[in-house]
Design a protein around this nucleic acid. Structure first.
Lengths: 244, 244
DNA sequence: ATATTTCGGTGCGTTATCGCACAAAACACA
DNA sequence: TGTGTTTTGTGCGATAACGCACCGAAATAT
């Protein structure tokens, strides 16, 4: 039985914020998983079979509408946990969880997560704080969807994704991004071209590379910074690369 | 000292879902308050001084953007509680809470709320489930903002507000609604006129009356029904008037 | 009773995004 | 090397919402 090591677990910041004592206990309930691009972890209304602590994978929470449109409400990476509905008591949610960037994660059985939550210790505290953080991200997405233009939203989205990745290169087609932002593919192509013209990103078939992180942050709408600093505040440190 | 009665407290569905035993204990920590239209309960970033269980008042969670735009992320009435950030551990949030419809509520000190949450009983369970419910509302608002037209969104918003009111008449100017939906005042005037032409609502200066509830539900985007049934599922019953 | 303010109705040119169509480029693979 | 597929680039008319300007009606204040 290959157990999960402390160092492996610490790649997820939520787990990494636990004291050694707590982490050693929690670790026994974790199981490593590999996740591939486009993999659907659960559909809207599905009974959640596992909670997931991403280490290198990135997950999108996506809504599908009757008219065929889609839009993302939040991004979860090594900063968080997928499956807050388990300890909130709802068990299912109305969103789809889909792998936006392939990678690894650690999963935990619902029963174990709920048991750990019930200990009312540091782990519960972290889970609740993360719940507020993701709520902030979703809320900011809501207003951003209403009030900001596609180009600045693309910046926000690329930054949020970049923060959750090891690499400066995102494996992403314009089409995929357009599904996340809920806009036309052509809208992304156009916005990406403009950002490339400003030398903030490099655009090639199927990938986008961040080449001027600072430029991107300046070009993004306020929403990115608001969400980022709220993650900092709530979870002790952000995952922004600005000062990394 | 006029204590809060069980019947008063039960006007808030969250409190009303408690067993008598629990409610009797909680009730001693509640204090009645009157809330007037437009009153700001807290600003973005404010330390929360109280949690609020609305009984007849309705609260909007509003975001203010740098460009002067505003948009609502959620509506809280007698179905819920204002101040989940207190037990989630964040203490502050990035939204403004403003009274959308004048009325009464019961407030509780942060310390008391946290203490009750810490008992890990039925009250904690309800608070967590409500957290998921409001998350669903916010999420659906996010995608609705992206993918749906103003007229159907206005239906959704009127229905959500109607559900949380005793009356069929909403005291609301088009301007106020436009701030909530994050669109132009003229856009609301136009959409409201269309709905009035279909005999779903009656439009007079400063008020909008729902005259054909069923018609409104059919005219609204799917978002209303999704949120409503999720509230049903999570909190045991909805607050929709459909079967009232 | 009159003046002032608030709110709703309407018109009009502007802008962002959409929907569709199609071509060019990059890539995959036989 | 050639062929099919995926992805990106581009054009263009349609549409929804915007910003602004102004008017009139309704409510409120003096």
């Amino acid at each position: 039985m290959a157990g999960v090591t402390l160092n492996q677990a610490r790649k997820n910041f939520l787990l990494g914020s636990l004291q050694d004592e707590d982490l050693r206990r929690v670790i026994n309930k974790l199981e490593p998983v590999s996740l591939s691009l486009g993999e659907v972890l659960y559909e809207s209304g599905d009974h959640l079979e596992f909670a997931l602590f991403p280490t290198t994978a990135v997950v999108s929470l996506l809504y599908l509408m009757e008219n065929g449109g889609t839009a993302e409400i939040g991004i979860i990476g090594n900063d968080g946990i997928l499956g807050v509905a388990l300890f909130l008591g709802g068990d299912t949610t109305t969103s789809r969880a889909i792998i936006q960037s392939a990678g690894e994660g650690l999963r935990m059985k619902p029963k174990d997560l709920i048991e750990e939550f019930g200990r009312a210790g540091r782990f519960q505290d972290l889970l609740l704080r993360y719940t507020q953080a993701i709520m902030t991200q979703i809320s900011q997405t809501a207003v951003c969807n209403r009030l900001h233009a596609v180009e600045v939203q693309l910046c926000r989205w690329l930054l949020l994704s970049h923060d959750r990745l090891d690499s400066d290169t995102l494996v992403m087609t314009h089409d995929l991004i357009s599904n996340m932002l809920g806009v036309r593919r052509e809208g992304i192509t156009l916005a990406a071209k403009k950002l490339a013209a400003k030398k903030f990103i490099k655009n090639s078939r199927g990938t986008i590379s961040i080449v001027d992180r600072k430029g991107m942050e300046d070009a993004a709408c306020e929403c990115y910074e608001i969400v980022n600093s709220e993650y900092n505040r709530l979870l002790g440190r952000g995952i922004s690369r600005t000062f990394a």
